[in-house]
């Protein structure tokens, strides 16, 4: 059991920002993990498994986001989410679809 949260910083790369579709994908991915995952900027962190919270972040292209994860699978959660951001959510649609069919 890992008690201290792990953190990582990512950048929103897709032109339209973290709008409905990428947010949907991110929620699906985050929901595959047991860990509590928070995401946000400037000290304001929200639940990464809540699409409404993600949308209200209003993260535009170029926004730096801090992700923190706490739990047994925190490390792999952060790794997967970082990959999703790195890929600019493009390839991520498939990832998200996999996640959905898994559950």
């Amino acid at each position: 059991m890992n008690n201290s949260p792990l953190t990582r910083t990512v950048v929103v790369k897709n032109p339209q920002g973290l709008h409905a579709r990428p947010a949907d994908t991110l929620v699906r991915l985050a929901s595959r993990f047991e860990s509590a995952i928070m995401i946000g900027k400037g000290g304001e962190l929200v639940d990464c498994k809540s699409i409404l919270s993600l949308l209200t972040l209003g993260a535009a292209q170029g926004t730096e986001l801090l992700i923190s994860a706490e739990g047994d699978d925190a490390d792999s959660a952060l790794h997967s989410i970082e990959e999703l951001f790195e890929a600019g959510f493009d390839e991520a649609n498939e990832l998200g679809a996999e996640a959905a069919s898994d559950s």
Partner: peptide, 16 residues
Amino acid sequence: GDIFAAQLQMLHDPRL
């Protein structure tokens, strides 16, 4: 169709 996927996600939002 994904518009509704996002709406479904909102409907089941754990924070909500």
